[in-house]
Amino acid sequence: MNPTLVSLALIYGQLSLLAFGGGNTILPDMQRQVVEVQQWMSAREFAALYALAQAAPGPNMIVCSLIGWRVAGLSGAVVAMLGICVPSGILTYCVSAAWLRFRDAQWRIIVQAAITPVTAGLVMAAAVILCQTTAIGVPYVMLSALTAGLALGTKLHPLIPLGAAATLGALGVFG
């Protein structure tokens, strides 16, 4: 058994069950595991792969497959994808039949109300760590701020600022 594939399965299998409130909450831990613990790539490279995955269609957790592919080829992509999907998928399968019974239960509403601010802090942590990684100069900081402002203030399709940033970057506008 390829030890890299085992590591990928363990890392993503664990993250699958920790990913409350969508995929962005697990980005910092994914970066910690992939960059610091396993030392498969640099933080800069991790941010570039994350950005590349944003330019592709599909669930945003497709970034896991991209990292798996980069680390261990096609089998790595498949193992990472199954790792992030299967544990939570099995949980969903088991729980969905009982959902009607506990949907309106007081304990469920309290658990949801407690998890929501935890995940809000985690997504903010993901944003700050990603911004720190990609802020390699003043123009890049301004670019991040401008993109955030556009996403907050307008209904612009996300591919438009991403495409414009890549084009202007290729032309050397940001140095």
Partner: peptide, 26 residues
């Protein structure tokens, strides 16, 4: 390389916007 440095900075900005949207109601 330059295109990806800019793309990554823009993608970080998107995550920041998402984080602010989630945090605002709290």
């Amino acid at each position: 390389r330059r295109a990806f440095a800019a793309l990554a900075a823009a993608a970080s900005g998107m995550v920041l916007a998402t984080a602010l949207k989630i945090a605002a109601p709290l």
